[in-house]
């Protein structure tokens, strides 16, 4: 009997731990959800006296917010496309060609992956002043792309190493050029890898407040990650209800993108490329 009981707890324990951890991970979001429906929301967690959508409607109806969200989507979206495109291109020769010194280049890329971007923001700001890119959305987009590119290339190369080369070779025999074989044969097999790079880049960029805050000056060019501070007033007053509603809306794109990408990042393949050295 005793042994049976032990075994049962042994079997239940992992389930219990998993669900406990899950609960712990959900808790911090609780306030955001509850407060977003409370027009009188304060910093403390409490059920709203009356359920209201007024926070959402006032956030959504403000044209400045609409613009900030569009700019945010444009900034992060284009950045993601640039990174996916450039890193796929760059990863191809790095994975397929037999090049002398290739290993060194890979090491340099790894090295770049590791640099904290925060550290170079002052010089980047100066550089942008010098080449007159300051306050330019495109410039900011390009900088953001460059900053997430090394990691993108690195992941993409590992994904590509996993795509069998025989398929390409048969395409070459059929007379396809390098580019055609890349587009027709490698790309479709790379879809999960592309999506993984995609989601990593987008998540990293969407929540980034620092880079656009430093590089963009005109308030009407700022993305949603910066304008979120509008709910903080002169003497430390915060409109918590609207802040929470704004946060909820702000989380949608990353959650949706993850939902879509997850389907393509098939089981067992999730990040296997990224995990490899």
């Amino acid at each position: 009997m005793k042994k049976m009981g032990y075994r049962r707890t042994k079997n239940i324990l992992p389930y219990f731990s998993l669900l406990f951890i899950a609960a712990m991970f959900i808790l911090p979001l609780l306030w955001v959800i509850v407060a977003s429906f409370d027009s009188q929301a304060q910093q403390s967690l409490k059920l709203p006296d009356s359920f209201t959508l007024s926070n959402y409607s006032s956030v959504l109806s403000d044209p400045a917010n609409q613009r900030a969200f569009m700019i945010g989507l444009l900034l992060s979206g284009c950045q993601t496309l640039i990174v996916v495109f450039c890193s796929a291109l760059a990863a191809y020769p790095l994975s397929r060609f037999k090049l002398k010194g290739k290993q060194k280049l890979m090491l340099v890329i790894l090295f770049l992956t590791s640099l904290p971007i925060t550290a170079v923001m002052v010089p980047v700001y100066q550089l942008f002043l010098m080449i007159n890119l300051q306050d330019s959305i495109i410039g900011t987009m390009l900088f953001l792309s460059a900053s997430s590119l090394p990691y993108g290339i690195w992941m993409m190369k590992n994904f590509m190493d996993n795509v069998p080369v025989e398929l390409e070779e048969s395409a070459w025999i059929d007379g396809a050029s390098l580019f055609t074989s890349l587009r027709r044969v490698v790309a479709p097999l790379m879809v999960p890898g592309l999506f993984t790079v995609c989601i990593f880049t987008f998540i990293g960029s969407w929540g980034n407040f620092f880079v656009p805050f430093i590089l963009l000056q005109s308030p009407d060019k700022l993305p949603a990650s910066v304008t979120i501070f509008q709910f903080f007033g002169q003497f430390g007053t915060v409109q918590y209800g609207q802040l929470a509603a704004y946060s909820m809306l702000y989380m949608i794109p990353t959650f949706v993108l993850y939902g879509i990408a997850q389907r393509y990042m098939s089981q067992g393949f999730v990040l296997s490329g990224a995990a490899k050295g």
Partner: peptide, 9 residues
Amino acid sequence: AGWVTPEII
């Protein structure tokens, strides 16, 4: 969900 939530939020 924790990972997907933007840093600021």
